[in-house]
Amino acid sequence: MPEETTRTVDDGRTAHDAVTGDGTTARRVTGDGTTDDAVADDRTTARRVTGVTRERLAEMVASASDGAITAGEALAAEVPLTALGFTSLAQMRLIDAVESEFGIEFDLSSAGIGALDDLDALERHLAGIR
């Protein structure tokens, strides 16, 4: 795993924390555009890093599924990834890749596992862990 990627993601988490402490809210704040300039600067950082992370996660989904789901399909998906053919083997590969790349332990409780089913949830999950 390239060190650079890890560092970028770490910065991303810091940016999330600085704005809202959680990825979900970060996107919501970014969307409504009613905050002051100082926060807006942070938001820009958050959005940039969030974008990178989201694309990276989509690539990881594509790689875990051996291309059965492309990164583009994962980004555009409006149904759960399992409905697109994301198998339990692919889920295991994704869990392993995420744990290795972000140095975390994935929550595999019934509640946590929902994060494997779409990128928004996965991104929130990763943001929430830190």
Binding site: S88, Q91, M92, I95, D96, L108, S109, S110, G112, I113
Partner: peptide, 13 residues
């Protein structure tokens, strides 16, 4: 079956 999904992933890990 719903509970078996995450239980299987925990087992695989």
């Amino acid at each position: 079956l719903r509970a078996a999904g995450p239980a299987a992933l925990r087992a695989y890990r």
